[in-house]
Design a protein around this nucleic acid. Structure first.
Lengths: 170, 170
DNA sequence: ACTGACACGTGAATC
DNA sequence: TGATTCACGTGTCAG
């Protein structure tokens, strides 16, 4: 565990750190670096260098942003097996599906648990069996309906179809 | 919604499809493709081509695998805003954190709900208040303890520290 | 014309 | 040593 973290510390973690530093300074290897004022006023002459020097820094920013995102993805997933770019995404997918499935189970358990609670409370009250469900929920769980309506109804993630994406593709 | 899907269909989805086809056949542009038997027996001659031609196909496989993983990640996340490589990861992170937070709420609600259930059942039975919790769980929810011990205890995802990775980094 | 996003090949570094 | 992974620069295509 620890040596894995230590061994892979040079593996696009310090390189990312180097990139972050290189973005501040202009100390990168200076091979055919633009000679002072080559990108704005006069492209006049060689057709290769002035047009591409804008693209290379844009590409570097894009690469850095993707690495930041990948690093951020690594931080939310608890069980990372390998520090590869591909393995990080694979572990994230596994973790997400595990979360979705567990959320489905929890929701089913809540549904079961609250039906039992209604059955137990029912003989003591004089409401009918249908209406007192929301009644009980409202008086005993004030923040419950807010959560339920905000999370469950708008983005109903738990009832989506899951086609097991990583196992199919490989 | 539909035009976004239609516009971006050429955007590393068909290219990925092309790559998948190219891996089957050997019809890729054949620029300095290895001349029959150039990697095993005799590299004899040019010093540039034989060493790199093994690397280029390996790199292509690596790139393809990463794209497959990224595509699989796109399929599990329900709300994808943009089809960029970076945006897909960003949306996945947001969705994962949303899932974690909701799971925490659901777990709290279950805890609250089952404590209420115990309080309601308690006066009817002759057990003491502490021991009949597991008693009730065992008889009314047989698969509950399995799930709880397998999911909650071993990989306790919901109680991890969340440092909001995407907002910090950008 | 120009920005943004991509795949590609290549040298270096890691194990 | 040889396989794997990475960052890099470049050409290219779409909006």
């Amino acid at each position: 565990m620890e040596d894995l973290e230590q061994e892979y510390k040079n593996y696009w973690e310090t390189t990312m750190f180097f990139q972050n530093q290189e973005l501040e300074f202009d100390s990168w290897p200076m091979e055919e670096a633009f000679s002072g004022s080559g990108e704005s006023s006069s492209p006049d002459g060689a057709a290769t260098s002035p047009a591409s020097s804008k693209n290379v820094v844009s590409e570097r920013n894009r690469r850095q942003k993707l690495n930041q995102r990948l690093f951020a993805l690594r931080s939310v997933v608890p069980n990372i097996t390998k520090l590869d770019k591909a393995s990080v995404i694979k572990d994230s997918i596994d973790y997400m599906q595990e979360l979705i499935e567990q959320e489905k189970k929890l929701e089913a358990e809540i549904r079961e648990l609250e039906s039992r609670s209604v059955l137990l409370e029912n003989p003591m009250k004089d409401y009918d069996c249908v209406n007192n469900i929301s009644e009980i929920q409202l008086q005993n769980f004030p923040d419950r309906n807010v959560m339920r309506s905000k999370k469950f109804k708008q983005t109903d993630y738990s009832t989506r179809v899951q086609y097991s994406p990583i196992e199919v593709l490989e």
